[in-house]
Design a protein around this nucleic acid. Sequence first.
DNA 1: TAAAGTAGTTATGGATCATAGCAATAAGCG
DNA 2: CGCTTATTGCTATGATCCATAACTACTTTA
Lengths: 144, 144
Amino acid sequence: MENPLDTGLRDFIGYNLRRASNAVMSDAARVLEPLGLRVTTFSALSVICDTPDVTQSHLAATLNMERSNTVLIIDALEQAGLIGRHRMESDRRSYALRATLKGIQTRKEAVAALASHEDRLFAQLDAAERAQLVLLLRRIEIPE
Amino acid sequence: MENPLDTGLRDFIGYNLRRASNAVMSDAARVLEPLGLRVTTFSALSVICDTPDVTQSHLAATLNMERSNTVLIIDALEQAGLIGRHRMESDRRSYALRATLKGIQTRKEAVAALASHEDRLFAQLDAAERAQLVLLLRRIEIPE
DNA sequence: TAAAGTAGTTATGGATCATAGCAATAAGCG
DNA sequence: CGCTTATTGCTATGATCCATAACTACTTTA
């Protein structure tokens, strides 16, 4: 009992992209939830772990979000004890964001959880195909 | 001046999927706006054009959305004169949705606009690579 | 030193999405 | 037939997400 009412839409790459992205994101959210993370907070935590003393503006630019929207995300990570805001001497406007030990540990657990989540969702694709998919995705023109 | 602060995230297919999907969707929205369509209303219109007398429930199932959320979308399409709700004699609970001539024409223009939008965004990929991308995306396990 | 720019923040509104519950109608079953 | 259950479309509502504007503190530029 297939349901190919969307055959006309399936020709658009964007339609398939959105479907896949929605499915993967909602499953990722489900997997991260027990760790107290959402997709966006995980992304921020991950960048902060890999880039000690990054600023909120720099983080926002990296993750393609508005500076204003980083505030609540950073608040959540800070209140969970996963990162800290540290004043910079060189520029007292910015905060230097640093992950705590707990933050690094939580990030590690999240990465493991997400890895098995992706193994499940992309079970139909072998390693070469997954790599191919990532390469294709990264070659898409991002406007601005 | 690259900005590879997200190197740890780039390994996740989901991260690349979301980035690509967001970029493509916002550009698609921009392209559809002059036609008075949003991405979701275009998707619904497209299915209705290809499936005369489809019901709202069937449409919702096809597009992976809740029945309740189709109502406003169908309202918008109907008020724009692109589709009509028709009572079914066989089942007086459901509406049979049918595109009007204007709806069919608008859908055609939207498809053309989206085709050139995809040509622009996926300029880095040749036809074979685009087909490959679609095939990979469609092989992803969609839970439920 | 005055003007312009930047970092973080607050407030706010729009768009999207999921849930619960309703009335009308249909289907299943005694 | 009558009663229960299920389904369709709909309303209302709340959560989340995302973008914009405006504010302060601070820095840079002229």
